[in-house]
């Protein structure tokens, strides 16, 4: 159970130094704009597993990029698609939702609901022209500090590689409020 594949599985960028040095090795033919780009990412973490997993990474003092800003909810089941749309509207380049592993949700099944909603959300984002890679869903348990770090690094790399959200694509909000 603990090793569920993330929903949005991406090729791991090979070298993160590349971005710092401004080199463009993006697999698309996009121009090399991503060097100094610091993505803004909002992370919705459930209180019981994922937030605790983030704390675990903290107590192990493993360093990771500061781009993900955590917003705590009691359960991933609380993550309303509106939150994600709001984050994009307010300038996020990516969103990540972290939940307890299947079967481990403190409230039994909130994470199943969250996973379901995430699938719906990806369709909705598509309609707004937002790439689905910008909204990731994954599982992190309270003990998985290392996985938390990996997921964060991975997400930051991915979004960095994709570049900032295009301005025109951002205003999705009015309809959802």
């Amino acid at each position: 159970m603990k090793n569920q594949k993330p929903e949005t599985k991406r090729k791991k960028p090979e070298d993160k130094k590349r971005s710092a040095s401004g080199g463009a090795k993006s697999k698309s033919s996009k121009p090399a704009v991503n060097g100094d780009f610091e993505p803004k990412i909002v992370g919705f973490l459930c209180n019981w597993c994922s937030y605790a997993g983030a704390d675990k990474a903290g107590t192990s003092q493993v360093k990771y990029p500061p781009n993900v800003n955590v917003v705590k909810v009691m359960c991933s089941g609380r993550v309303d698609p509106q939150f994600v749309m709001k984050a994009f509207e307010k300038g996020a380049d990516g969103v990540i939702i972290l939940a307890c592993h299947p079967g481990d949700c403190h409230y039994k099944e909130g994470n199943y609901k969250a996973a379901q909603r995430h699938r719906m959300l990806l369709k909705l984002l598509g309609q707004f022209g937002i790439e689905k890679e910008r909204c990731r869903f994954d599982y992190v348990s309270a003990g998985e500090g290392d996985k938390f770090v990996k997921v964060i690094k991975d997400t930051v790399d991915t979004i960095r590689e994709m570049g900032p959200m295009k301005k025109t694509k951002k205003s999705t909000s009015e309809r959802t409020e």
Binding site: V73, M74, C75, G77, R78, V79, D80, P81, H106, Y107, E109, G110, K113, R117
Partner: peptide
């Protein structure tokens, strides 16, 4: 109610 918020989002 245990306060998970799943219904709030739903």
């Amino acid at each position: 109610c245990q306060g998970c918020g799943t219904c709030v989002a739903a």
